[in-house]
Nucleic acid binder design. Structure first.
Length: 875
RNA sequence: GGGCGCGUAGCUCAGGGGUAGAGCGUCGCCCUUACAAGGCGAAUGUCGGCGGUUCGAAACCGUCCGCGCCCACCA
């Protein structure tokens, strides 16, 4: 880009900044400029130390919600700071194909046209999904640009793209060859609507009302009563189970019992699984439709009789054939009742029922041939990496959850009966051959060979994300440079789905190197009342709406400021407004500085020459640099944002800027020095703020310094300059001003009203600040006929005001009396402590000193207040 | 049934053995030459209840009450 076009495209206003910050005009062009200049591109050949964060890939099917905006703000802040610190920084972007979710969305689209995916056929359907992905994915990257996400767009990846598909095949093959992937027939969680198996964590349990009925099985002397909430499965019962030690039923074990409504008889078996205390102590066993029953069946060699098809419709011959599971349930209960076999009913009976996390349909446990990952060794390694301290989880409380999960994990069902996803790379031959095809292998051709029709769980490919995005299995420069990732930032809600899987696959595929060293788990975004955001509840917000209204910086700052570790983040529009106000405040403070000749040119003046005011703000500035750094290292986004907010607004923009006005008016060397200090303070403050509010700071900083961009500016270092004396001096100054302001306000004086005053500051720390005090308090020279009607002693100095007899003595007495009482109470409390020997003996010195200091201050306050009372004219 | 966490100002939340904090909201005065998206000033809490430890508890311990989340093969 030439100088000329750069200037034309520049959205950065010339030094004449408008009165109000208008984010909409600035943000878009700024972002594109950052990208065009390649600031976010990560160079694998760089000599710099790497800093890598992968985006938790959003589902390609959606658009970003506030939760994404939150997560991206945190990642962007982290990576922007590291970039400024001189790291070769990669924020890896991309999206997830989100198998079942995306397939469902596209199927719904098709349904609107009155079609099903079967009308299109597999190939055409998948083509259709790709088409959908094109549209939807564009929306997401558009939102990310609006947010200001500093990702390396050149490296954008998609879990279904060619390279990542190769990675998936490679890992599958490796796991298969290591016998960590196998195929087996088991009870799986089946969604009768999505028509696929899903894994254990894709099942959401909730308490549903059901009906517990007790059924009498058998005839004559040999009867048992079993309780069930799923009467329809009785058609598939193949045993009755009792506890081996249950005396009541010992005589029945091994006997056959007549199964009602059928012509079958089923054995009574003894199994430890049965709880003799529950119900009658007898359990009906339906191995084909219940995971526990399946286990019992395995132990006792029971047959599996499936009585339902994939739609959960009864297939068993007889009167119930063709009914779905709920219809069948009531029909069967009715039929049993007619036979007098219902001995008890309990309704409603609340029990936990599994639902498909995608469509909320009740899960049907189903016996089915599926592919599994044997998680034992993988999960062990994933747990150990955290136990060893190789990988740290923030906040630490989350480690417990992590361990509970990885230490008690069942094998992972990875096959899905879907069309959208990575097809399982296994081929079956005409003579029963099974061949797992690796990425470099030829696919078998010829008569009778077919590929497995299932696809992989979407989390299989996202489990490879930290290295597949870097080119694995190829040994690329990027992989070498940017693996392992530095930190993972994601929500605690996908700790198991995603984080644990990345840990397992990363450690396995990358020879024991964990995918990242730190896991930062953030909370969920909620509305301003702490309620979960959801479309159906009507409180969901499109981040674009708020960005349009208040600017991206405002949204980002609000989110960052709410980011306490691992805790949910409430957000309301009012709060975003508040952050917009902050951005505008930054804008105007910088505008003031520019109008008054603040500069970053040249060395800072030597401390000896600077006023206490300048030394104070520089001292505070350095403290804040140190504070912000410490918070970043601990991922305390709320703390660092809050610290910056208060430092910038309260200390710099209010006190310091106000104090510089007097200096600038007076001119001379002091004013020149202050211009430089003000420039310095803004320079550093804008840098500190930039990772969180990149747009407004970039605009202002480039104007202030004339430099190219804050994105590539150097992160501030604590120069270690501190001046506690100056800090105390300015504190005293603030006290005086606040005290007199309060008096003025209590007296009903208008803020602008000038009051004649006599200041007695000699011998106090306030002596050099007379001009500032007069300016900030609107105090006139005493002039002719000055008569002090109120004298305020503060910190050894006095401020005498001539209110020309208009003083409200009663109001002032009342207020002073209140203050006096408070101070006396303080003295009593402090004295009680200081005469308490146990306290003096045991309390640490700094606490005792603090109490002494408090006593001294209270005594001084009393003196001051008494002085003020004495100075009041009689009523 | 296990585990984790929370109850602090009207709302949302920090804090965490040594004088109760922030943002927003509220009240009063003011368009003071950076900013009314602003300035200045003010009010507001038995820190869920009860016990205990301690010189000192909102903070630590116990217990109770209320709330949230995670895990679990209670038929």
């Amino acid at each position: 880009m030439t100088e000329n076009t750069q200037h034309q495209n520049s959205s950065v206003p010339e030094p004449e900044l408008p009165k109000t910050y208008a984010p909409a005009e600035v943000e878009g062009p700024l972002y594109e400029r950052w990208v065009d200049r390649g600031y976010f591109a990560a160079d694998a050949k760089s000599e710099k130390s790497p800093y890598t964060v992968v985006i938790p890939p959003p589902n390609v099917t959606g658009s970003l919600h506030l939760g994404h905006a939150f997560e991206h703000t945190l990642i962007d802040a982290l990576t922007r700071r590291k970039r400024m610190q001189g790291y070769e920084t990669l924020w890896q972007p991309g999206m997830d194909h989100a198998g079942i979710a995306t397939q469902n969305v596209v199927e719904r689209e098709l349904a609107k046209e009155g079609k099903s995916r079967h009308d299109l056929g597999r190939e055409a359907f998948v083509e259709r999904v790709w088409q959908w992905k094109g549209e939807s994915g564009g929306q997401i990257s558009g939102q990310m640009r609006r947010l200001g996400d500093g990702v390396d767009w050149e490296r954008e990846r998609f879990t279904m793209d060619e390279g990542l598909s190769q990675a998936v095949k490679t890992l599958f093959k490796k796991l298969y060859d290591d016998e960590l992937i196998y195929r087996a027939e088991r009870i799986i969680n089946w969604c009768p609507r999505c028509l696929t198996a899903i894994s254990d964590i894709e099942v959401e349990y909730q308490d549903d009302d059901g009906e517990l009925v007790s059924l009498k099985y058998g005839d004559g002397d040999e009867t048992v009563v079993v309780a069930t909430t799923r009467a329809e499965t009785m058609l598939g019962d193949t045993a009755i189970a009792v506890h081996p030690d249950d005396e009541r039923y010992k005589h029945l074990v091994g006997k056959l019992i007549k199964l009602p409504l059928t012509d079958r008889s089923i054995p009574v078996v003894a199994d430890e699984h049965v709880d003799p205390e529950f119900g009658t102590g007898c359990v009906k066993v339906t191995p084909a439709h219940d995971p526990n029953d399946f286990e019992i069946g395995q132990r006792h060699n029971l047959p599996n009789i499936a009585v339902m098809d994939e739609h959960a419709v009864i297939t068993a011959h007889g009167p119930f054939q063709g009914l779905d599971r709920l219809e069948a349930r009531s029909a069967i209960v009715a039929a049993l009742r007619a036979e007098g076999r219902i001995v008890a009913e309990k309704r409603p009976y609340t029990h936990s029922v599994g639902h498909c996390s995608r469509c909320k349909t009740t899960i049907e446990p189903r016996l089915s041939m599926q592919w599994w990952v044997k998680v034992g060794p993988l999960a062990k390694a994933a747990g150990d990496a955290v136990r060893d301290g190789q990988v740290k989880i923030h906040p630490q409380e989350m480690e417990k959850r992590y361990f509970d999960w990885v230490d008690n994990l069942h094998d992972w069902c990875i096959s899905r009966q879907l069309w959208w996803g990575h097809r399982i790379p296994v081929w079956y031959g005409p003579n029963g051959e099974v061949v797992c095809v690796g990425p470099d292998d030829e696919e078998p051709t010829g008569e009778g060979w077919t590929q497995d029709s299932d696809v992989l769980d979407t989390w299989f490919s996202s489990g490879l994300w930290p290295f597949s995005t870097l080119g694995w299995p190829e040994q690329t420069e990027s992989l070498e440079k940017f693996y392992p990732n530095s930190v993972l930032v994601t929500g605690y809600d996908i700790l198991f789905f995603w984080v644990a899987r990345m840990m397992m696959f990363g450690l396995y595929a990358m020879d024991g190197t964990p995918p990242f060293h730190t896991i930062v788990l953030h909370g969920m975004v909620r509305d301003q009342f702490g309620k979960k955001m959801s479309k159906s509840f009507g409180n969901a917000v499109n981040p674009l709406d708020w960005m349009d209204k208040y600017g991206s910086d405002a949204l980002r700052f609000t989110l960052a400021r709410g980011a306490n570790p691992g805790v949910d983040v409430p957000i309301g529009e009012d709060w975003v407004q508040g952050s917009r106000n902050f951005a505008n405040k930054i804008w105007n403070a910088t505008r003031f500085a520019l109008m008054n000749g603040a500069t970053v040119e040249g060395e800072l003046p030597p401390a000896e020459r600077l006023s206490a005011t300048d030394r104070w703000i520089l001292s505070r500035l350095n403290s804040v640099v140190a504070e912000v750094d410490a918070y970043y290292e601990d991922y305390q986004f709320a703390k660092l944002s809050d610290a910056l907010f208060h430092f910038a607004w309260d200390e710099v923009f209010d006190w310091y800027v106000e104090l510089t006005k007097t200096t600038f008016q007076e001119g001379g060397q002091a004013a020149e020095d202050t211009k430089r200090v003000l420039g310095e303070v803004l320079d550093v403050t804008l840098k500190l703020l930039h990772p969180v509010v990149p747009f407004v700071t970039e605009t202002l900083w480039t104007t202030l310094t004339g430099n190219e961009s804050l994105v590539i500016a150097e992160w501030p270092k604590d120069s270690t300059f501190r001046d506690e004396a100056a800090e105390r001096e300015i504190e005293t100054l603030q006290q005086v001003i606040t005290e007199v302001r309060r008096f003025r306000s209590d007296q009903g004086l208008q803020p602008g009203q000038k009051v004649p005053a006599r200041l007695t500051l000699d011998g106090t720390a306030l002596a050099p600040h007379e001009a500032a005090i007069r300016q900030l308090l609107r105090l006139q020279p005493e002039g002719e006929g000055f008569a002090a009607t109120a004298t305020l002693p503060v910190s050894g100095a006095t401020v005498a005001l001539d209110l020309s007899g208009t003083i409200d003595v009663a109001a002032e007495r009342k207020r002073l009396a209140k203050d006096l009482a408070a101070a006396e109470k303080e003295i009593t409390a402090a004295n009680a402590k200081l005469t308490n020997e146990a306290f003096l003996a045991k309390a640490p010195d700094h606490v005792v000193d603090k109490i002494r200091g408090r006593l001294t201050k209270a005594e001084a306050d009393i003196e001051r207040i008494k002085g003020q009372l004495d100075a009041l004219p009689a009523a």
